[in-house]
Write a protein that binds this DNA or RNA. Structure first.
Lengths: 231, 231
DNA sequence: CAATTGTGTAATGTCGACAATCCATAGGTG
DNA sequence: CACCTATGGATTGTCGACATTACACAATTG
């Protein structure tokens, strides 16, 4: 994944916004990625270059490059001379995705304990989550949850880990979109996070790791059966 | 990364080799990747599409797509409308690469202990390494070393881990090519591996993990100063 | 002289057309 | 009927030409 902000350093009045010159392939890739991550394009759906080119009113070149970007993200696969399609999601891949995420976040926790990063960000996101849970706001809770985990990874101060985690999290987005939402456990999930922060604050590596592992496994086990393919 | 073998299922006499219909972009990508991983194209070297197209006698399209493949591999970076170049390698990136590799291999060891995979492959590669070390054959030793670690990952039976590890190992190849070979420690490095296998055989997770971590860190610390950029 | 404006060049970005390939399916042949 | 062959359609692969952009550097202006 390659998210690069314009990085406006001089805080000028943003009335005259900096012209953004986004290449077509990026625009196309973003739109397609959105469609996949939101579940509008389901696993197995075929992506035909000519059709997409006509729909989006661009030539095939940017479409091809966009699809290749998504291939790098692991969301699309190509079969030469035959077609491209949204990568099918197997139950195994879902399990592997979550187990790798667990390893990443455990690694982050270890590094945070070593480099003594401030945990304020994590606490903030915990508060956001509990607020969202009380307000019964599903979207906000999901957003705060992601922000928490994102912060956890960023605090580890490891660019490669961050990039790998982001890439992995794309698939998690996709998985979540394909699941039947089980909103019952939301406040429970929200409650999982503060103890993690507390363990980190206590410098208790073992407890932090166990809490993170358990939390990830709960997420992975929600309802794997609902993941299907449309061939 | 996308290494896909032809996958010849029927073990026919390979006299008449199966026709390989490799797209140009893949051939180009392979050649460029070779050049980068062997150190012939150093970090910072710029890749000009038109020049490459002329040199290789193909049009720009496959060159562009090949470069994008290498971008996915994390070996090349693009600056829009300006140019593409071999991604510069910072000391930090090198360190991060090795620390992530450590995490991957520790994860693999844990899984191997859980699923009780056979360790015969690992023992075989250990033997190859000691043989190569005795014969003072540097190339063979490096190959056997990679085979050992590759096997370690494969035994973990985790496709996503395997793919991530392969991608990471690309950069390790590059790093090794850029280093001044310090051949003194070769037999020492070779000797690091059998104890790991032994620890796995004993089911001693703690010891296996410590040995793997130590081994990785030794490799990371060889001579980081020799990594330079050519802007 | 300093600052701004113009201009040229080198590189990537985009396009439309054509070629190569695979797959299914129809048709022949023993 | 079973098996091989060819033919057509759909899709990706490749190409050459043109458009767009950014940068450097000269030209202009005060």
């Amino acid at each position: 994944m390659t998210i690069s902000k314009p990085a406006v350093s001089n805080a000028m009045p943003s009335d005259i916004a900096p012209i953004e010159n986004v290449p077509l392939r990026v625009q196309v890739a973003d739109r397609l990625r959105n469609a996949i991550l939101s579940g509008r394009l389901r696993p197995g759906a075929s992506l035909v270059e000519t059709a997409l080119a006509e729909q989006m009113n661009v030539s095939r070149a940017p479409i091809r490059e966009a699809i290749q970007i998504l291939e790098n993200d692991g969301l699309v696969e190509t079969i030469a001379y035959k077609g491209k399609r949204v990568k099918p999601l197997t139950a195994r891949e879902v399990a592997e995705t979550y187990s790798l995420r667990e390893v990443f976040e455990v690694m982050a926790a270890r590094r945070i304990l070593e480099n003594g990063a401030s945990l304020d960000l994590l606490r903030t996101h915990c508060d956001e989550m509990t607020a969202a849970a009380e307000a019964d706001n599903f979207e906000a809770l999901v957003a705060a949850d992601e922000a928490f985990h994102h912060a956890l990874i960023r605090l580890a101060d490891h660019d490669l880990l961050l990039a790998s985690w982001k890439n992995l999290y794309l698939r998690i987005h996709q998985i979540m979109a394909l699941r039947n939402r089980d909103e019952r456990n939301l406040s429970e999930v929200a409650g999982n996070h503060p103890p993690i922060v507390q363990a980190l604050a206590d410098g208790d590596a073992k407890r932090a790791i166990k809490l993170i592992s358990d939390h990830t496994r709960i997420l992975a086990a929600f309802d794997p059966a609902t993941i299907v393919q449309t061939p």
